[in-house]
Nucleic acid binder design. Structure first.
Lengths: 254, 254
DNA sequence: CGTGAAGTTGAGTATGCTCAACGGTGGTGG
DNA sequence: CCACCACCGTTGAGCATACTCAACTTCACG
């Protein structure tokens, strides 16, 4: 049985209290939002954005601070506006599966049921927009294009999830790492950040829990990739993808 | 590297041509549909169902017959009305990950992009309702509750996918099998079929490709579970869950 | 029956895990 | 200001789980 990359005395014990939150000022901040083009909010414009701004609250998280836990009432949905958030599920004995890393523009909290099906926690300092579920649903009634956009987001997430299943079920450790680095690089590029070198804001343990590996294996494979000149490890968790073609070969077609 | 449970000369070579399809008679067959309560179509009623019936076509598949392949233009979406369909992704070297088994009532074909992100193929004789994507989207304009229902389906699928990631990334072979049998049993019950014994319409190879294991491992673990009296193998691919509590323990909390 | 696919079992092995030690780094408090 | 400590990352040795390859049995179907 593989352990989870989780220390017994976990950051979750450091939950500081409620996440800080404050109402937005009344001039439409959504209209001024500099990551809107990445988000579901981009479905709206002008006066609609004004209305959206009225139901949004801002949330700031420190690294390791939980946003919500699996099983809690799903009262809110979120949009990441900066930083990195991980979502994960736990087994009773502590084994962990990170099901995604979310960055600026990513939507978070879709839940069919009344309860979150997963936990969410900041990886790096992060800011999010928070919507009361009921209010967002009301907004979706008024603005059908918002609902349509959300369906698009959900469909996309589904395709991503299927690819991750392929990775977890059928790829080797090296293939998993290669796929991960490439995806992360592409994702950074979409957000207008450095594609190469790419920054890894999460720990080896987080990466392991995302890829279905242990920290040790992640570390070893990194060393291996470094040794063959495919990547180079740089300060601040940056990774240079020195031989992207090689890396794409290793990733096994994805 | 783990192989895929795929024989070189594959059933896909047996694609018979186009799947049989014929228009529905004009009396609303959707109103008479006996699995409607399981489907997205349940969002509609009366005259709306009549309109739906006008854009639906019936598809019948033999075991092993493909419905569509990854990368094809995603012109249709489907609803399974009977039988079992598997959806899967392939790596270039043939390794396969089955991302889901679909049964009566299950919706199929959500695709954000213009192309299917996965392949779909009948496991047992199956019938499906087929909708031209464009026509269904038009119907969603007219009937917003249909779109809402679809968003609900997508959210649910997402939660299921995350649980499967947990299984693939962090569970042992025995836990995977136990989880699988329980889920399948619950799914059968929802459709009003026998919950125990539960029928496995798919091969060991399919199960392996779904659980990220080889056929041999699936077989061995089955034997093991049988040996400890947790399950019993019966004719026709039926499995009796003799000790459900034990099985749930093994499944590791899910 | 005969045939081919599916399923089971066995022997040996490899990949990635476990347990352990150690080096680096950043933050904290004496 | 420096010492300490916790956390993170890396590396090593040994091991276990699940894989590979192979043979054989069972089953469904013609």
């Amino acid at each position: 049985m593989q352990q989870s990359n989780q220390s017994p005395f976990d950051v979750r014990n450091r939950r500081l209290m409620e996440a800080k939150s404050r109402p937005e000022p009344s001039t439409s901040p959504c209209a001024a939002c500099n990551v809107r083009h990445l988000t579901v909010c981009d479905a709206l414009e002008g006066a609609e954005l004004q209305q959206l701004a009225e139901i949004v609250q801002n949330v700031e998280l420190e690294p390791g601070q939980p946003l919500f836990d699996e099983g809690e009432r799903a009262d809110f949905v979120f949009n990441v506006t900066a930083g990195c958030v991980k979502v994960y599920k736990l087994l009773p004995d502590g084994r962990r599966q990170v099901t995604g890393f979310l960055f600026a523009g990513d939507f978070l909290g879709l839940a069919n049921q009344d309860f979150y099906a997963f936990s969410a926690e900041a990886v790096s300092p992060a800011t999010l927009c928070r919507f009361q579920r009921g209010k967002l649903e009301a907004a979706m009634e008024r603005f059908p294009q918002l609902e349509k956009r959300l369906l698009g987001v959900a469909s996309h997430e589904l395709a991503v999830a299927q690819e991750q299943m392929l990775l977890l079920g059928r790829k080797t450790a090296k293939e998993r790492l290669a796929s991960f680095l490439i995806k992360l690089s592409e994702s950074a590029e979409r957000r207008g950040q450095s594609k190469n070198p790419v920054r890894l804001p999460m720990t080896r343990a987080d990466i392991g829990d995302y890829l279905g590996l242990t920290t040790e294996t992640v570390s070893r494979v990194m060393t291996q990739l470094k040794g063959q000149g495919t990547i180079a490890l740089m300060p601040n968790g940056q990774v240079e993808l020195s031989d992207l073609e090689k890396l794409e070969d290793l990733a096994g077609g994805y």
